[in-house]
């Protein structure tokens, strides 16, 4: 179970790529084939990609849904 108030910043999941298929969700099993090391590596890559960047927040703290 995820503790949402865990004070340590955590990457909970990563999905690489986009899905061009217009009928169903594409599940990428490639990383599944490489085991836990792939998850550690992907979390590190994601952390590097996120670090120091400022995102556009969609429906953030001050925004109401249209």
């Amino acid at each position: 179970m995820i503790d949402p108030e865990d004070p340590r910043p955590r990457i909970l999941g990563v999905r690489f790529g986009v899905n061009p298929n217009s009928s169903s969700l594409g599940i990428d099993v490639t990383f599944l084939l490489f085991g836990g090391a792939a998850a550690v590596f992907s979390a590190l890559v994601a952390s590097v990609l996120l670090r120091g960047r400022t995102p556009v927040v969609l429906h953030g703290e001050d925004q109401e849904k249209p």
Binding site: D6, P9, R10, I11, G13, V14, A46, L49
Partner: peptide
């Protein structure tokens, strides 16, 4: 690269979201 990254609230705060 194209990716969707799921982060916990602590990471979201680090990215500038104080609360939601």
């Amino acid at each position: 690269p194209h990716a969707l990254v799921s982060v916990n609230r602590a990471w979201a705060r680090r990215l500038g979201v104080k609360d939601s």
